[in-house]
């Protein structure tokens, strides 16, 4: 990185650290924080969308749909999420390969499960055999996103369903009195108002989602935990930058990163809550009205 970094062994303290903290592996470590943010940025809207679909399904008047929605919410919430994070990527990966196998190799005569092996034909492998490393990484990341969205979608569905129920009944009756259909009343009355009721629950889910991101490590991705272990471990004099066991400092950095993230989002949610409470028939909205008048 810097010009003076050619011989780290002879550098004074601060220059040594300047060089040490700007090695290529350290940049991979910094990028892994961006990966956490990216996971959050993708998962949150997807989970919210799944939650909305799930909540609508639970509300549905067609019983197979509502049954499906209730099943989804209760099964995902009733089973430890770790099990889901580990189960979904493997099961989904095998499922995709199984489907591709049946499409592309219809005349394959051997069973797919042979003892402890899961064997599909070469064309059905996902990602394809010989794919570059970044394709494999993106695939693993996408699997993680699916697992996270499934679990957090169920949490969100439960919260949103509760929020839809919490919109005052009288408002919906008024809408009906104006001759609105069920769909119209939902779009014009429930949808704009439910968010203020959903927000405490959603902010809780968001905090839990943040705290679940280190579990990416268990899915074999090179995330912040992976790099903290790699970089922090003791380096002998064979390495360019020898140092004793520094893992505790790397994990301290991670701890602070997450504390900052949860603290920051708590404040943001406080702001949004104040914004949404404006003009609402809730205690907070009432207080704002008094303060303004």
């Amino acid at each position: 990185m810097f010009a003076f970094c050619t011989d780290p062994a002879s550098l004074p303290q601060w220059q040594w650290f300047a060089c040490y903290l700007t090695t290529a592996t350290h940049f991979a470590f910094y990028r892994s924080f961006l990966m956490v943010m990216l996971l959050l940025a993708i998962t949150a809207p997807v989970a919210l969308a799944m939650g909305l679909v799930g909540a609508l399904a639970v509300r549905s008047r067609i019983w197979p749909v509502s049954w499906l929605g209730k099943g989804y919410v209760n099964i995902v919430r009733g089973v430890p999420d770790i099990v889901f994070f580990m189960f979904v990527p493997i099961a989904l990966g095998q499922g995709i390969e199984w489907v591709f196998h049946h499409i592309q190799c219809p005349d394959w005569d051997q069973p797919i499960r042979q003892g402890n092996d899961f064997i599909v034909c070469r064309e059905a492998k996902v990602p394809p055999v010989g794919a570059p490393a970044w394709v494999r990484n993106v695939y693993a990341f996408a699997m993680a996103v699916v697992a996270f969205s499934l679990v957090f979608g169920a949490f969100a569905a439960n919260t949103l369903h509760g929020a839809m129920q919490a919109v005052p009944r009288a408002q919906i009756e008024t809408a009906e009195a104006y001759g609105m259909t069920r769909g119209q009343a939902f779009r014009r009355i429930i949808m704009p108002q439910m968010w203020v009721y959903a927000l405490p629950g959603l902010s809780n889910i968001w905090q839990i989602l943040i705290k679940a991101t280190p579990l990416l490590f268990l899915l074999g991705l090179q995330d912040a935990v992976y790099w903290a272990r790699e970089l922090g471990g003791q380096k002998t004099s064979l390495y360019t930058y020898p140092h004793p066991d520094w893992r505790v400092w790397y994990f301290l950095v991670l701890l602070c990163f997450y504390l900052l993230l949860t603290w920051g989002s708590e404040r943001v949610f406080g702001r949004i809550n104040a914004r949404l409470s404006r003009g609402q028939a809730t205690a907070a909205g009432e207080r704002m009205r008094r303060a303004a008048g």
Binding site: P214, V225, R229, D245, V248, F251, L252, L259
Partner: peptide, 17 residues
């Protein structure tokens, strides 16, 4: 704040190291 604001998973790693 510290123990609720950070992931348990990271706490395990931190304390172990």
């Amino acid at each position: 704040f510290v123990f609720r604001g950070s992931p348990l998973f990271i706490q395990f790693f931190f304390f172990y190291s």
